[in-house]
């Protein structure tokens, strides 16, 4: 079986589980929307400078929902020894990582599509711009990469709900900073300055995809 088919098998398994149990995407989506609504009260998202705080609100919603979803995904895998089954399958550990990352990105992507559409409508910001979508994709890949690695580790610890954000927030700070900055620049029509942030996001993604691919095997030994 080629790696692509193995990744497809893992994503298919996660998708099937999600279609039957509906434990992740619904919860994440509702959470993301509630975050956006709550932010509307915390900051004034209707004023002239709503683009600046708006991109922050959007990213906090995405990151919190992603955190929730990835923690949930790892917990679901732990139920009934399902994770042991995945590890026992004749699939390379790095490929398992890519498969889990692909399903995490798929679920977060669905939630993002919904959250961004609602965000654009609620706050009338031109968020469905191709460059903004690129920034969202790059940011999600970086965040999802670290999240997939750490959620598998956090799932076997005591107090796992606490452990995942404690691990993930400090280490994904570059993603948060560059994604929020880039989105703000794009929403305020300053496309020219966005270049370095996109390269930072891209560099982060490539670097940590490589590292996580290598070290994932050490994190999941049973």
């Amino acid at each position: 079986m080629t790696a692509a088919r193995q990744i497809y098998a893992i994503v298919r398994k996660d998708l099937l589980l999600e279609l039957r149990a509906r434990e992740q995407v619904t919860g994440m989506a509702v959470f993301a929307l509630l975050t956006l609504v709550t932010f509307n009260f915390a900051f004034d998202l209707t004023g002239a400078d709503r683009a600046a705080s708006g991109s922050g609100a959007l990213w906090v919603a995405i990151i919190f929902a992603g955190l929730l979803g990835m923690g949930r995904a790892a917990a679901i895998d732990r139920q009934q020894g399902a994770w042991e089954g995945v590890l026992l399958s004749p699939v390379d550990r790095g490929t398992i990582f890519l498969g889990k990352l692909a399903s995490a990105l798929l679920f977060i992507g669905i939630v993002e599509a919904l959250a961004m559409a609602v965000f654009a409508a609620l706050f009338s910001l031109p968020v469905l711009h191709p460059m903004v979508l690129l920034v969202v994709c790059l940011g999600t890949v970086g965040f999802g990469t670290l999240g997939t690695l750490f959620s598998v580790m956090a799932a076997t610890t005591r107090a796992r709900e606490v452990m995942l954000p404690v691990l993930l927030f400090p280490l994904s700070l570059p993603i948060v900073i560059s994604a929020v900055r880039a989105t703000t620049l794009l929403l305020t029509d300053r496309q020219a300055e966005v270049g370095p942030w996109i390269s930072l996001l891209l560099g982060f993604d490539v670097l940590f995809l490589g590292i996580s691919y290598i070290v994932f095997g050490h994190a999941v030994e049973e």
């Binding site: 670290l146 690695l149 400090p170 280490l171 700070l173 570059p174 900073i177 560059s178 900055r181 370095p196 942030w197 930072l200 560099g203 982060f204 670097l207 940590f208 590292i211 996580s212 070290v215």
Partner: peptide
């Protein structure tokens, strides 16, 4: 390992910020 590699990137991102 992940943290050590990340620290210089954190520094860079905060400086640009």
């Amino acid at each position: 390992i992940v943290g050590f590699v990340d620290v210089p990137i954190i520094h860079m991102s905060v400086r640009w910020w």
